[in-house]
Every structure is written in structure tokens, then in C-alpha cells.
Amino acid sequence: MTNKEKYQKAFSVLKPSGNIRMEDLNMKRFHLSKVVAAAAAAVICFVASNSICYAATGNTWVEKMVVFFNGEAVETDVEVTDLGDGNYSYSMEVPDDEAPSEIAIVSDGSGRNVTSFAIMKEESPYLSEEEGEVWLYYQEGKVNITEDFADGTAEGTMSMNGNEYQYHVSGTVEEYDISVERNHGDKSCNQTWEN
């Protein structure tokens, strides 16, 4: 008996528990589309430098802030975390279908001036599985991260419109964290998205 015959004989014991029915596929497909719709609300997190130092570090609190989404002022709850190194992490919920192209926080309700930064966000990065391969989409670019992402994380650089972006992806195709950092001059801004 050849190795192929031995191998096929040994694995012939493996059988699925039943035949797949078209009704099962259609039901599961419908269920998946509902899950995707429910996940439409994304969380935008980003870190911004702030020259003002605060005594309490490592704290997280929620504040009402006025946030400009695409030029429109919206008062919303923002989770602020003092990272203790002069940076603050800001996190807020934004419906995916209203993804802003620009975010600028102009008031945090506490009198602090946080107008010194503006986060450009033309489009949230996202993962897409196509023909079994995993692609990271960001703005007008995309990069195949299938091999790198096999262990649950992927890191690399992508170039678009003359800018270099450093990305870091972790999680799964369904639930992931994506961090994209763009270096421009002596400043850098870092944005993190969760899905």
C-alpha cells in the first residue's frame, strides 16, 4: 500500500455529522447579515498630544464634549483616559454610516483647551476577507495581510498619496483592533479603531 493510500484510508474515518442543507446555509447567511448590521456602530479611539499636564494619571472618565464631525458640532459623551505622559486617549461612538472625514474636538467641557489638534479621518480602516484572504483597507489603499495576520497580529507600512502609514492589526477578521499612525513632519497622530 502506498503512502497516499495509507493516508487516505486513515482519514476516511472523518465525516461531517450530516449533509449540509440549503435551508441551513440560507438561515445562517441571514443571521450573519443581521450580525453585521448590529455591529454598524463603531468606536473611534485616538490619542492626541496635549501640552497641559494633569496631576491624576491613569484615570479614565467620561465627559460631555463638543465634537465636530464633518464640520457639524455635536455634543457627545467621550471617554477620556489620562495616559500619564502628556497624552490623552479619547474614545467615542460613531455610527459607521456617519463616518466623519474630519474630527476636531474643540471643547471638553472642563475649560481645557484641546483645540491644538485635529484628527483627519477620511475613512475607518477595516478588514475584509475575500476568497479566503485578509485585506486591510484604509482610505484609498489596501494591503494583503493574510500571511502576517495568521497568528492574530499584523504590522507593516502602507503608502498613500505621498504619506507613510504604519499599521498594527490584532484580533480576528470579525473582531479586530486596528491602529494606524501617520508621520508628518515632526508630528504624528495615532488612531485606533475597534470592531
Binding site: 476577507e129 476568497e131 479566503g132 484572504e133 485578509v134 493574510t146 495568521a150 497568528d151 492574530g152 484580533g171 480576528t172 477578521v173 470579525e174 473582531e175
Partner: peptide, 17 residues
């Protein structure tokens, strides 16, 4: 070949979940 490739990649993703 396409079905096998998709199944293999999906199985790898399952292992990460």
C-alpha cells in the same frame, strides 16, 4: 481549489477566535 483555499483560511481564523 478556491473552496479549499477559503476553507483553510477560515479554519485558521477559527483557531484565533
Amino acid at each position: 481549489a478556491w473552496l479549499l483555499r477559503v476553507a483553510i483560511n477560515k479554519a485558521k481564523n477559527v483557531n484565533l477566535s
